[in-house]
């Protein structure tokens, strides 16, 4: 059973659909007890970082997520929450699973938000790449990105102007996608399948 963490934000329907399409049962819930029985969890997210962390706290999910030891996939804002902090609309603490901080895109020569399909390049070899196309494109929508992360945790990266945007990060039981795998066509589904079947 795959649990989709519902803290009142995010396009849960698309994530849920993509997971089902790949042959897995899902439950969508904000109740830690209901989520605790799942094999793997997905933390989606859109909106602002501070609101998300507040909603997670208010739903009584913070400690649950913080101490969850089975596989956890963070998507977009969910992935950002894995880092130490974010500067989006004030300074907010994240879960701190991964080293690094969420910063506003500082390159003055690019459009913000970063919207659209960008090439996802290998930062390191990893079995997640095996079923993917030789040139992977993924769909991004965001204005903040992870900086000063440990390169060992960085699996896939996209270039935007002068910036290197961490796209795919993996450490221990945590996997994070800054892009939306559920919206990234066939390669996106392969990346999601890797999490569901092999991670």
């Amino acid at each position: 059973m795959i649990g989709i963490i519902d803290y009142g934000m995010g396009n849960l329907y698309s994530v849920q659909n993509a997971v089902k399409k790949l042959g897995f049962e899902t439950i969508t819930s904000s109740d830690p007890d209901a989520l605790a029985v799942c094999d793997k969890l997905i933390l989606p997210g859109v909106g602002a970082f501070g609101d998300m962390m507040e909603n997670i706290q208010a739903s009584g999910l913070y400690d649950f997520i913080k101490t969850w030891k089975k596989p956890l996939l963070g998507i977009c804002l969910g992935m950002q929450s894995f880092f130490e902090s974010s500067e989006e609309k004030g300074i907010h603490q994240g879960f701190g699973f991964l080293q690094g901080h969420i910063r506003f895109m500082e390159d003055p020569n690019v459009r913000i938000p970063h919207i659209g399909w960008n090439a996802l390049e290998k930062n390191q070899n990893h079995p997640i790449w095996d079923p993917c196309s030789s040139q992977v494109y993924v769909y991004y929508v965001h204005s903040y990105y992870a900086k000063d992360m440990d390169p060992q945790d960085l699996v896939g990266v996209s270039e935007y102007g002068k910036m290197k945007i961490p796209g795919l990060v993996i450490k221990d039981n945590w996997m994070g996608c800054q892009f939306h795998p559920e919206k990234s066509g066939k390669d996106g589904l392969e990346i999601l399948r890797y999490f569901l079947e092999d991670f």
């Binding site: 396009n11 849960l12 698309s14 929508v141 919206k183």
Partner: peptide
């Protein structure tokens, strides 16, 4: 939303936060 895995936008006749929410909840990006 349940059959294609790409982003899409919905417009036309959305007048309130409730209208917007309905479309996003239904799977529009």
């Amino acid at each position: 939303a349940s059959e294609i895995y790409m982003p899409f936008t919905v417009g036309g006749g959305l007048r309130s936060i409730e209208d917007i929410k309905r479309m996003l909840r239904a799977g529009a990006d």
